[in-house]
């Protein structure tokens, strides 16, 4: 079953000058069709301004298609009667941890979503507990969010989304503002949700290392989907990715350089241990 499906999705916005006169129309998403199966871990890559975030905002009806259709769990996102179901099924986590936390205490913040959904109080507390446990923040439930580190705050944001029991979580550059260990914490928590809870994950990021465990990667450029494949398929195209202002993980780049210099190493190496194995085999 596809949790998310888009067919010929187009999103245009009108640019206006200071007086409000129309200057032109820009197409941010250009005839995108894609399907994401329930339980998948999908990554979306693309340079700044390639349309990733605009696409993501269609997945929980923050934006509606100018043309084409988006279905979430089989429901058309542009039909008003589906709005609540769509937003409950697809949760969003954004870049800046400080913009997403509203509660004075961690557990209150996480309880905000289900409370808004009208969940009975007893169940809210159960959901808060399981969500905080899922991201490893249960010990911090009584803390004030503003004393937490960036990685911890992002995990609280994720717990807040989890407490609404979504089928799918969209994370738009969740690690852009974090230090290395914060990045690791968040990615580990996200992988856990996917592996253990079976929640569909759609991760938008500029860090190539974060997506090597995805089932599938979509690459966007100029609002269009230009590449689609497994991490190995995508990252074996080092030169093509550079043209798209992207990159490959450092391990992959190193393997690629060594290959160019004549060491017979396979293309598309993604992990340290693969490269070490390949080199050991040559000795």
């Amino acid at each position: 079953m596809d949790i998310v499906k888009a067919r010929n999705l187009v999103f245009e916005y009108i640019r206006r000058d200071e007086e409000g006169n129309v200057e032109g129309i820009s197409t941010a998403v250009d005839h995108v069709s894609l399907q994401i199966a329930q339980g998948d871990f999908v990554a979306i890559l693309g340079h700044n301004g390639s349309g990733k975030s605009t696409l993501a905002k269609h997945l929980n009806a923050i934006l509606y298609p100018t043309e084409g259709t988006v279905w979430v769990d089989g429901k058309d996102t542009s039909a008003e009667e589906n709005l609540w179901a769509v937003r409950q099924n697809v949760g969003m986590v954004f870049q800046n941890p400080d913009n997403q936390i509203i509660g004075q205490v961690v557990e209150e913040d996480v309880g905000f979503g289900p409370e808004n959904l009208g969940v009975p109080t007893k169940e809210i507390w159960e959901r808060v507990e399981e969500s905080l446990r899922a991201v490893g923040m249960y010990e911090y439930r009584k803390h004030s969010p503003n004393r937490l580190s960036g990685g911890q705050k992002q995990r609280v944001s994720i717990a807040g989304v989890l407490a609404m029991h979504p089928k799918c979580i969209v994370l738009d550059e969740p690690t852009a503002m974090l230090d290395p260990s914060g990045r690791k914490e968040v990615i580990r928590a996200v992988r856990g949700l996917n592996d253990v809870e079976g929640i569909t994950v759609i991760l938008i990021t500029h860090y190539m290392e974060e997506v090597i465990h995805a089932n599938k990667i979509f690459v966007m450029d100029g609002g269009k989907l230009v590449m689609e494949g497994t991490p190995r398929e995508i990252f074996s195209q080092v030169e093509r990715l550079k043209e798209l202002r992207l990159d490959v993980p450092q391990v992959t780049l190193l393997a690629h350089e060594l290959r160019k210099k004549g060491l017979p190493i396979p293309e598309g190496i993604l992990e340290r241990k693969e490269l070490v194995e390949a080199l050991r085999g040559l000795k």
Binding site: D179, P180, S181, E209, R272, K273, V276
Partner: peptide, 23 residues
Amino acid sequence: LEEMHLAAPQVTYILRDLEKAGI
């Protein structure tokens, strides 16, 4: 560095692994 919530560049880890593997 890891105790300080930091890390080394990825290639440094690869080289350490290689060294351990006897290269």
